[in-house]
Design a binder for these strands. Structure first.
Lengths: 259, 259
DNA sequence: CTAGGCTTCGAACGAGCGTTTGAAACTTTC
DNA sequence: GAAAGTTTCAAACGCTCGTTCGAAGCCTAG
């Protein structure tokens, strides 16, 4: 003990983490190779395995460094709210605030999160690689469980099974919207006071998520009310623009015969 | 001419398209290999190159088959709305309806879309592979341009540059939310009348997107109103749960020394 | 100054990747 | 039923992947 994790500069470690952060954002897990990372970090190829045990370990360390802080603050905020509530169930608004206020705060802290934090959150949420999916779902399962419990007390009418799905949806919509909101912020690049956009954005997002959480269970059994009031006839009767469109994708057989 | 595209059964082509659809949904572009696809489709490895010219061509053909129909219906609906409007600008609600009503309709048509259509839409939108990103942005640029033009007429106060960003955000939020809404639908797996959930979902999403589109330009210049009303003190003063957390990710140096 | 633990380095390994090839099998046409 | 065209097949190609290895370099403590 006390040997590693402390003394030396670990400059290479830091450079690798920085590099993999940017590359993961741009290319995802499968699209980022160890050689790309070490080239970007100006480190030797073997450094990934030496410092992190492999590509998977490097990505997990990068994600843990960013997301541990997020879930830590989320739980702290949830604790604070529940202490204030003194036993009574929290409102959905409060629980949602505990979910995304820390995300916004970290996005504004260059040290623990940074400007790309929200985009990183979105990427991590949608990346299909099992190495990341398993890591995230395992490591943050306790945090998710705490929030699920809070929602269960706030929404006693929703069965636990359904609540699991809805919470999953909330987390997804949150990550997705925040990730999108990052591009949003680029709009105000000229104006340095871009902060309140986040606040406005979430003020609008919250009612949407709350409505979704409280939505009635599927017992309306209506025939098919969908899309009924919206132009059922137009798009069908008209042959649309024209049908020459599909030819843009070559069928390749013709291409090979030509050669 | 007239030789290909028509006569034979093309059963292998169809099986490959079906297989790549499911595999892309589960593993993304980089995570899906040609060998996985041909194994799943019970076809020879070379079939991918014979029928589609390569892995990239197969993915593009699969996406084109699903998304061409979407954008075709979107444009047809936009045309219909503009014909009714007779020169006057459309409302944002109408334009948004032209964007996502076709998506919902295709999701309910097993032939041209299918139950996984919305998830496929989301995956396609977030996949980081250049082969897909370039293809999508090039092929559907005209469609996007048409909608941007419609929004520009509906929102004359928003500068074109900003509108580009906001439209991009709308498309993202739409795809993301619809993709999330698919998991949503699994809730009602028991109940076959799960249709109106989509409608409800989009009824809530539309006001959110419209508010975002019409949001005032960043001129509030407030100091830093963010997160001010939400628990600035609690999460900081308290050391949160405990700091033993980070040990779950091994530093690998210790692991290697132990061996 | 020297010994010993970290860290870096170049080189190589086996495995899996997308793609190519030429022959075999099948289908269609006359 | 032979000829021509289309599709399938097994095998191999060159390449990149993540990982491993032993030697060399570096820093620090004795």
């Amino acid at each position: 003990m006390a040997t590693s994790e402390s003394r030396a500069s670990h400059a290479t470690r830091e450079r690798l983490l920085k590099a993999v952060e940017g590359l993961f954002l741009a290319h995802g897990y499968d699209g980022t190779s160890a050689r790309m990372i070490t080239a970007d970090a100006r480190a030797n190829l073997a450094a990934v395995n030496y410092h992190f045990g492999g590509k998977e370990g490097l990505f997990q360390a990068m994600l843990a460094r960013r997301l541990d802080a997020l879930h830590q603050e989320r739980l702290a905020l949830l604790d604070a709210y529940e202490r204030i509530a003194a036993g009574r169930p929290l409102t959905c608004e409060r629980i949602l605030a505990a979910l995304f206020v820390p995300a916004l705060r970290l996005a504004r802290e260059p040290k623990r999160g940074g400007g790309d934090f929200l985009r990183l959150l979105g990427r991590a949420y949608v990346d299909p690689s099992p190495a990341l999916r398993e890591f995230l779902s395992e490591r943050y399962a306790p945090s998710i469980a705490r929030f699920k419990e809070a929602f269960a007390r706030a929404l006693p009418r929703i069965a636990p099974r359904e609540l699991t799905w809805r919470l999953h949806f909330v987390m997804g919509a949150l990550a997705y919207t925040l990730a999108g909101a990052d591009a949003w912020k680029l709009i105000a690049a000229l104006n340095p006071a871009d902060a309140s956009n986040d606040q406005l954005l979430l003020r609008r997002l919250a009612p949407f998520l709350i409505a979704g959480l409280q939505a009635p269970l599927p017992d309306l059994t209506g025939e098919d009310p969908i899309v009924s009031l919206e132009a059922t006839r137009q798009a069908r009767s008209r042959g649309s623009t024209n049908k020459s469109r599909a030819s843009t994708v070559p069928s390749t057989k013709a291409a090979r015969r030509a050669a």
